[in-house]
């Protein structure tokens, strides 16, 4: 049982948790994740470790409530317990001083990109962060990224904050303005990662994405998370989760993520009333 030290919504349906997990806090590196199970009947899901505090022995995760498990998790508060947390899993981000590194986060993807953006800065890169959100409320970790980056751009689809447009448009603008970009990290919804890959492909800019397949064990023993990269089958949980964006078969990833759409909808039915609780809590 893993105790939740703190829990707060940082955007509609997006909650940040600090969880007591000293071994994981000590070992984790940027890019790695944990698999959690909320309770006895729960399923196992992967969540990126956004941050950690080795003195306090805690890790941070940022969770978007979409399906039954994330919605249930987001109902928990400080003092509650998560039944199972295992990690750190996956390969750490490959960090080096590339030169100028651009980290792009779409929605909750920003939380996943954050630890790697920090690591890139610490390795000596000139770091630019582009944070995208549907609207102002969905732009997260702006202050944290301002501290960890040399420049920060914010885009919103509806223009309610920052620049109106998509993250790819901002990236293209940087490229067009003659900036020399040596490395791009993009994490967010699959269409966004795909779009960033296509934006950088003509210029041959090294681009890395973090894949988000369905997982069960997370240690390479079941193959449920398999994806196709460079025409070869990989297990995202042990070979990734980060891969060369220009070699990822995004179509297969998108398709495999739909395997349980029917079951997921049925499971969600049971909690459709709970979203009222979030709205109430956010409005406090």
């Amino acid at each position: 049982m893993y105790r939740i030290i703190s829990a707060e919504f940082i955007a509609p349906n997006i909650k940040r948790f600090e969880i007591e997990a000293p071994k994981i806090a000590k070992k984790r590196q940027a890019g790695q994740f944990v698999i959690i199970r909320v309770n006895e009947t729960g399923e196992r899901i992967p969540l990126t470790i956004a941050d950690s505090n080795t003195e306090l022995g805690t890790i941070s995760i940022i969770v978007q409530g979409i399906g039954k498990t994330t919605l249930e998790l987001n109902q928990l508060n400080s003092g509650d317990f998560i039944r199972d947390v295992v990690g750190p899993l996956g390969k750490a981000s490959h960090i080096e001083n590339f030169g100028t590194a651009v980290s792009i986060g779409g929605g909750v993807g920003t939380a996943i990109a954050y630890p790697t953006a920090v690591a890139l800065k610490n390795a000596g890169n000139y770091t630019i962060s582009i944070i995208g959100g549907r609207s102002k409320d969905f732009v997260i970790l702006e202050d944290e990224l301002k501290k960890a980056s040399d420049e920060v751009f914010v885009t919103t689809d509806d223009g309610s904050y920052g620049i109106k447009g998509f993250v790819t448009q901002q990236l293209q603008a940087l490229i067009d303005s003659g900036r020399e970009i040596d490395f791009v990290l993009a994490i967010g919804p699959i269409p966004m990662m795909k779009a960033v890959a296509e934006t950088t492909r003509p210029y041959g800019i090294k681009t890395v994405v973090s894949l988000n397949p369905i997982m069960v064990d997370g240690t390479g023993m079941c193959g449920g998370c398999r994806a196709i990269v460079d025409n070869k089958t990989v297990f995202v949980c042990v070979d990734g989760p980060e891969f060369d964006a220009h070699k990822v078969d995004f179509l297969t990833l998108e398709r495999r993520n739909k395997i349980y759409n029917v079951e997921e909808a049925a499971a969600r039915e049971h909690i459709c009333n709970y979203d009222k609780m979030y709205t109430n809590e956010l409005n406090k």
Partner: peptide, 28 residues
Amino acid sequence: NFNGVYSSNEFLTRVNLMKAYKFPDMTT
């Protein structure tokens, strides 16, 4: 890698360990 192709480890883990045969009482 088509949807519906499983390794025996995944299929059996979902059913035996995660008790998917009791879905939706069990979430997996």
